[in-house]
Design a protein around this nucleic acid. Structure first.
Length: 479
RNA sequence: GGUCCGUUCGUCUAGUGGUUAGGACUCCAGGUUUUCAUCCUGGCAACAGGAGUUCGAUUCUCCUACGGACUACCA
């Protein structure tokens, strides 16, 4: 039965594109919601007017759609909800749980450098009405700070980390409204999560300190405190938090690299979570069915591109040629343009087992569409001996010309017959033929390639090789 | 500096008061294959260190070390 009360949200700030860490946070929220039949909302945290950009909001949404992380309801923009925050701040001020602080930034800096502490010296925490009024009369700018408790401890129970406790004295009277009156992150988040009736706040581990502060606000505003779950970080190979320094970190980059969204999701899910079985390839449905926030790791995980490649290859092998076709076309609409779909599906079928990404199909399929222009030099030197190979291939062409029904079985039969008849080892025929036809030393079954590209094309490529290969070879020697 | 969090093969991880500490990726060696890839078989490789509790600790406790996060009128 639907659990209509369970509501989670993903709250990116549009100051950059969706990166891997954000994508995983979104994924875990989404999986949690789907698993429990709850709601998954997206809120754009654009209160930093300087750094927030619409184009990033757009990019983030695009990436989420590509990943298939669909959200419920309309997008919520914090920048459009200012009255809500201002009302909360006002009530905090009126109830005496927040106060005006007229200290300037420079003033605070000098305090901090004086005693080397990082704390707010509480200079305006307990001022007389007169002091405050006189600054107000002077029109002095002020921030608004939360009057936080200083005795005892604050604690909460995290779904992943367990109980987290900190001394109240450790936490500053932090700012909830800037001197221009605008509300600050910690306040805004609490007001929104409350207003949106968020039941579970699932976010990165970098937020645990914020959670403590936010709990003060929940208490001061008399809101119900949601359940918190903090996700471990995703690290780069240097064990530092994943960032631009590590190169491709945006979801879009992985899309461009040719990973399918399911493969990326699979890998992201395994970064910090596993079902306790030995399964490592998951469909999205598998993930939804098996996801359990209690099994999320406490330890941060290093992102491993090699494993992603392997997972991707596994997904591709399991995919239908038709859906691979769609993915290729999405990435490169002009791929195999002048060929009909059944032909392209056959190409995909042949390449499927040796492709780790969608771009691999694009990169390794040229010779199905046009004659190779590049030939593997090393392979040529190894398998094309002008003295013997040329005549072998000449005779092979004659042999192939007699093949009436052009399919891989008959081609194979014909070539094997020819080899046997003339006591030539198969390799001496097949390797140069493969090189002439595909330009490479490896690839799918030669007979299948030949069937697909057709008799005439095969023979013309072989003819080209006979006349050009020795020259190419001597060119190479000469240079 | 302070606070919080973490520490099992290089990486992702399973796991238990008594196990030959399991799997996956990578890498290496074989096999299969016309080639490449797949696939199969095998191999390398880990409980950060020190105390304590205990008959027995990788597992429980404490300390140390190391790593990370946070410590803004950013979010």
């Amino acid at each position: 039965m639907a659990n209509s009360k369970l509501r989670v949200r993903f709250a990116p700030s549009p100051t950059g594109q969706l990166h891997l860490g954000g994508a995983r946070t979104a994924l875990f929220n989404w999986l949690f919601a789907k698993h429990h039949n709850g709601s998954f909302l997206v809120r754009i945290e654009d209160t930093d007017t300087l750094r927030s950009k619409d184009e990033f909001t757009h990019q983030i949404c695009q990436s989420m759609k590509w990943l298939g992380l669909d959200w419920d309801d309309e997008l919520i923009f914090q920048s459009k909800r200012t009255e809500l925050y201002l009302a909360a701040i006002q009530s905090l001020l009126e109830s005496g749980q927040a106060y005006r602080c007229f200290a300037t930034k420079d003033e605070l800096d000098s305090y901090r450098s004086m005693d080397g502490s990082f704390f707010y010296p509480e200079i305006w925490r307990n001022r007389s009405e007169n002091d405050i009024q006189s600054e107000l009369d002077k029109n002095s700018p002020f921030t608004i700070r939360l009057k936080t408790p200083k005795e005892g401890i604050i604690s909460f129970s995290d779904e992943i980390y367990g109980s987290i406790k900190v001394d109240n004295s450790e936490i500053d009277d932090f700012i909830i409204a800037r001197s221009d009156g605008s509300p600050v992150y910690n306040l805004v988040v609490v007001v929104d999560d409350n207003d949106m009736k968020i039941s579970h706040v699932i976010r990165g581990e970098d937020h645990v300190a914020n959670t403590l502060k936010q709990i003060y606000i929940y208490d001061a505003l008399d809101y119900t405190i949601p359940v918190f779950a903090h996700l471990p970080m995703i690290l780069g190979p240097d064990k530092k938090r994943l960032s631009k320094r590590h190169g491709a970190t945006g979801v879009q980059a992985y899309q461009a690299l040719g990973f399918t969204s399911d493969a990326l999701l699979n890998h992201l899910a395994l970064l910090g979570w596993n079902p306790g079985t030995e399964q490592d390839i998951f469909s999205v449905q598998d993930l939804i069915k098996q996801f359990d926030i209690k099994r999320v790791q406490k330890k941060s995980a290093v992102f491993d591109i090699q494993k992603l490649h392997w997972i991707s290859a596994q997904h591709i092998m399991a995919l239908s040629s038709n859906s691979i076709y769609d993915s290729i076309k999405q990435l490169n609409p002009s791929w195999g343009d002048s060929y009909d779909k059944p032909f392209l599906l056959s190409v995909i079928e042949l390449l499927k087992q040796r492709s780790k990404t969608i771009v691999d199909f694009i990169h390794t399929s040229h010779y199905f569409f046009s004659s190779p222009t590049q030939f593997d030099k090393k392979a040529m030197r190894k398998s094309w001996k002008p003295e013997t190979t040329t005549s072998i291939i000449e005779l092979l062409i004659i042999e192939l010309n007699t093949v009436l029904e052009w399919n891989s079985a008959s081609i194979e039969k014909s070539i094997k017959n020819y080899a046997e008849k003339n006591e030539i080892s198969l390799g001496k025929i097949i390797q140069p033929t493969r090189l002439a036809i595909s330009g490479a030393s490896g690839g799918p079954s030669l007979f299948s390639i030949m069937e697909l590209i057709g008799k005439n094309v095969c023979i013309s490529r072989l003819n080209y090789a006979i006349t050009h290969f020795p020259i190419i070879e001597s060119d190479k020697n000469g240079s």
